[in-house]
């Protein structure tokens, strides 16, 4: 199906997210505005105004009632999805690079940037799911990353762990109750920043994308690298598709180098790999800048990508996508059916 081009932003996209039902897409960009869109036709549902700087991150809670955002104006904000009302603003010393709800929506995590004497931190707040309720100012947890700054983080299954990806290519596992560092391992190449960390639906494993041109599938409890997906370009984002065993990787030459090369060389494509066999299956072209984020429909019906070019491209998967199977997968499916 033809992709739907969402051209509501004036500057580079930084993150796009589906709500758990998959009917709404939230997008944030460097133009200070949060947009909500209907995923099936690309119509704009509304915008959330208030941030004073570039936005870096967005997340929606499991009931699609609360929306969290963070940006370069050093604030993390909570909005009511339905009305666009600003519910809460938390202020920090540095900008917020990543926000994420836990799977039950009761905890909200934020990653702060390292700058001017402030170390990078991961903060956690308890959230009252009721939009009308007063939200707390008290941090349930504060983790200081003094080794290497955290760039991305998220809650594992049951909110057991907080997993963070770092600037030096390492991944750390923290106890989400105490904030104690349990384990840390070098997943990507040394000093190659981890640019994204997205969860599998059950949050027992996740995928990381890195500037070292690879994406890795990592188990949440052991931090073992399960699979590795090498590409030929620095990666900004990686997502795991439900239903089909694929991963989608997005990236391209760094934005600052783009003007010196042709669009062809930039490799601004979304790449599909088979999650288990680690083989490239296909690519989707379209953006004329690097892909900054790819998000997958929670029911696996489509995906969308936000690019440095200021566009969100929403794709709905066609039938062949679902029909495609490796021979051994078909065998497996047959065996299951016969049981």
């Amino acid at each position: 199906m033809r992709p739907i081009l969402l051209s509501g932003h004036e500057r580079a996209l930084t993150q796009v997210k589906y709500n758990p039902d998959g009917d709404i897409i939230f997008s944030v960009s460097k133009d200070h505005v949060v947009c909500a869109w209907f995923s099936h036709n690309g119509e704009r549902l509304g915008t959330y105004h208030g941030h004073q700087g570039a936005l870096w991150t967005v997340d929606v809670d499991p009931t699609s009632s609360l929306l969290a955002t963070g940006g370069a104006d050093n604030t993390m904000r909570l909005w009511e999805v339905k009305t666009g009302k600003l519910l809460k603003t938390w202020e920090f010393a540095t900008s917020i690079k990543r926000v994420e709800f836990s799977s039950d929506g009761k905890l909200l995590l934020g990653v702060t940037e390292k700058r001017s004497g402030h170390l990078s931190t991961i903060v956690v707040y308890e959230i009252n799911p009721d939009p009308a309720a007063e939200q707390t100012d008290e941090q349930a947890l504060r983790i200081v990353c003094d080794e290497s700054k955290a760039t991305v983080a998220g809650f594992s299954y049951l909110s057991h762990y907080i997993i963070s990806g770092h600037e030096d290519g390492s991944v750390s596992q923290w106890d989400a109750k105490t904030g104690e560092l349990l384990f840390s391992t070098q997943v990507h190449e040394d000093d190659m920043q981890i640019t994204d960390l997205q969860w599998a639906p059950d949050r027992t494993y996740f995928i990381t994308a890195s500037k070292d041109k690879t994406a890795k599938l990592v188990a949440a409890d052991s931090l073992d690298v399960l699979k590795s997906y090498p590409t030929d370009t620095p990666l900004n984002s990686a997502a795991i598709t439900p239903v089909k065993d694929y991963v989608i990787l997005g990236g391209g030459q760094a934005a600052m180098d783009v003007t010196t090369t042709s669009a062809r060389q930039g490799k601004f494509e979304a790449r599909f790999y088979h999650k288990i066999f680690m083989e490239e299956i296909g690519r989707v072209r379209g953006h004329f800048g690097p892909l900054n984020y790819v998000a997958v429909h929670p029911q696996g019906l489509g995906y969308c990508s936000g690019g440095e070019d200021g566009y969100v491209r929403v794709h709905h998967f066609d039938k062949p996508y679902f029909d495609f199977m490796y021979e051994v997968e078909r065998e497996q499916a047959q065996a299951q059916a016969n049981l």
Partner: peptide, 8 residues
């Protein structure tokens, strides 16, 4: 929640 693939 996790067994429900993230849906509440």
């Amino acid at each position: 929640i996790e067994l429900n693939a993230g849906r509440v």
